[in-house]
Amino acid sequence: MAHAGADRPIPPGSAPRRMSSGMRLLLGNEFGLAVLILLTAATFALTLDGFTSPFSVYTIGRQIGIDTMIGLAMMAVIVTGGLDLSVGAIGVCSAMLFGWLMQVMGVPVLVAVPLAVLFGASLGFVNGFTVVMSGVHSFIITLASMSIFFGVMIFLTKAAAFNGLPPQVQAFGKMRVLPGISPLLLITVAVCAALVVFYRYSTLGRQMLAAGANARAAELSGIRTGRVIVACHMLTGLLAAIAGLMVTARTGAAVPSMAGQLGQDWLLPAFLAPVLGGTLLSGGRVSVIGTLLGATFINIMTSGLLLMRVGEFWILAFLGMMLLIAVLADRTRQIFLTSRGMI
C-alpha cells in the first residue's frame, strides 16, 4: 500500500541549488497556512457578526485544542509511513476508563488522568507490537483493533455513558484561563512544545524520523527499528487518550458515542490537520506546528461557514474537499520544488 511520495523520483539533471532559510520559510507549509489563517480570520471577523464574540473565540480555541491533539496522535504514527485507524477507539476507550475509574471506583481525578493516558499508550503498544511482529501493514491491523477495542468497550460499559463525574472535570472543560482561552487549548500548546523538543532534540524522536524515512537504512545504522515503531504507536495511543480526556472535559461526561461508530468520526480531523500542516504520508517528516495550524484553519473555516448558515452536514463535505485540496496542493508544491531542484 504505497503512500504519497513513497518513491517520488528526484529528476536527474536538476542541479541542487542553495535555498536561503528565508526562501525555505516562504515555501514551507507553515507559512502558507499562517497567511491563510490570518486572511480567513480577518475576512470572517469583518463580515460575520459574532465571529469575534468572546464566546465564539473561546469555543473555536477549545475545539482547535481538541482537533490538534487528535491530529498529533495520528501524526505520531504517520511518521513511520503507517497509520492508525483506531485513534478514535483508543480515545473513547481511555475516556471511558477515565469515567469508570472516577465514577465507579472513586479514584481521584489526578490519579485517573495518568492511568487513562497510560491505558491509551498500552493500547497503542498492542497495535505497534502486532504490526511489527506480523509485518503486516498497520492499516489492516488497526482496522481489526479498532473493531476489537470499541467492541470490548461497548460490551463492558453496555454502551452507557458515565455522567456522574466529579464536578472539577466539567469545570475544567468550561474554565477560562485568560478571557476567551480554554485550558484545553493551553494543554495542546504545551504538548506541541513538548513534541517539537521531542522530535528535534531527543534520541527517540530522531530515531522515529529516521526509521520512518527509510527503515532499512535506519536498521543498518544500528537503530532498533521494531522498537522505535512500537514506540510511535504508543505515542499515538497516549496522545489519543489525552484527546479523549479533553473531549470528556468538554462534555462533562464520558460518552461511548463521542467519536461516532467505532471512533470513525475522528479519522477526518486526524488526517486533515497533519496533511494540511505538511506531514508527509510516506513518513520521515513531521510538522507539529503545521498540525496546530492545520487544525486552526479547519476550525476557523468551519465556524465561519456555520455562521454563514451553511448546514453542518455540508460542512462535512467541505472538509472532505479540504483534504483533497490539501493533498493535491502538497503534490503540486512538491513537483514544483523538485523541478526547481529545491528539495
Binding site: 529516521a210 527509510n214 532499512r216 537503530i223
Partner: peptide
C-alpha cells in the same frame, strides 16, 4: 535504499550512529 536517509540532512545521516 539502505545506506542513507536521502530526505534527511547531512548531519542527521552522519550522526545517526
Amino acid at each position: 535504499a539502505e545506506g542513507l536517509i536521502l530526505m534527511h540532512s547531512v548531519l542527521a545521516n552522519g550522526g545517526i550512529t
